[in-house]
């Protein structure tokens, strides 16, 4: 069956040994940087360097499985970074919204149409990337038209998206003959989840809409 195609299966054993040593050297460098740095904000940024090295060491395995494992690794990094940066703002007591936020003509006229285009293209793409594209459109929309009252709705949507995912998982495990519904539910779930999370970031800028526009 596999021989029918003109398949190239890579033999990675020789490269892996060298690549792993180089990666471990890079990890040592990044940890060295974390060790030397004293400034709180810079340390937060340096942790992102460490996260990237974490993805590299997973990617070295170079199978389809490694490609699938990068996603959880990436998400854990993003989630912790988001939570920690909120914590940093809280800890330092930074209250004032930045004064010179970018404000140009296109931010008054374009948000609606740009958001619609992004959302439609995102729906066509679907899945994770589609969610990111559509979410980017909504992020831009909410950043231009600061609307904090939408936040509750978006949070609810992201909760339902998570539930979608759990339902899809149960379908796969309990009634695998309905795998098709599982795929579609999970695809819709990840789309809604990514859109909701990204537009949530859009509503979080500044002081929530009284000041801007």
């Amino acid at each position: 069956m596999m021989m029918l195609f003109d398949m190239i299966v890579y033999d990675l054993s020789a490269e892996y040994e060298a690549a792993l040593i180089i990666t471990l050297l890079c990890i040592i460098i990044s940890f060295w940087a974390v060790m030397r740095e004293r400034e709180d904000l810079h340390r937060l940024i340096l942790t992102e360097l460490v996260e990237i090295m974490c993805l590299v060491i997973i990617a070295l395995v170079a199978t389809d499985l490694a490609e699938a494992l990068i996603l959880p690794g990436l998400v854990v990094g993003i989630a912790e970074f988001l939570a920690l940066s909120e914590l940093y703002i809280e800890k330092e007591g930074l209250r004032k919204a930045p004064e010179n936020v970018l404000h140009i003509e296109v931010m008054d006229s374009a948000p609606g149409i740009i958001a619609v285009i992004f959302v439609i293209y995102g729906i066509i793409l679907s899945g994770f990337t589609g969610g990111a594209v559509a979410g980017l459109g909504l992020l831009f929309y909410f950043m231009c038209r600061g609307s904090s009252e939408k936040r509750e709705i978006i949070e609810t949507v992201s909760g339902y998206a998570w539930a979608c995912w759990v339902v899809a998982f149960i379908v796969f495990m309990a009634v695998p003959q309905y795998w098709f519904f599982g795929v579609i539910i999970a695809g819709a779930g990840i789309f809604a989840k990514v859109v909701a999370k990204m537009s949530l970031i859009g509503t979080m800028n500044g002081d929530g809409g009284e000041g801007d526009v």
């Binding site: 996603l71 959880p72 998400v75 854990v76 993003i78 989630a79 912790e80 988001l82 939570a83 992201s158 909760g159 998570w162 995912w165 759990v166 998982f169 989840k193 999370k197 949530l200």
Partner: peptide, 12 residues
């Protein structure tokens, strides 16, 4: 993936 989304959920 369930755990990954749960982590994101908790962090958000």
């Amino acid at each position: 993936t369930i755990i990954e989304t749960a982590i994101l959920f908790v962090a958000f």
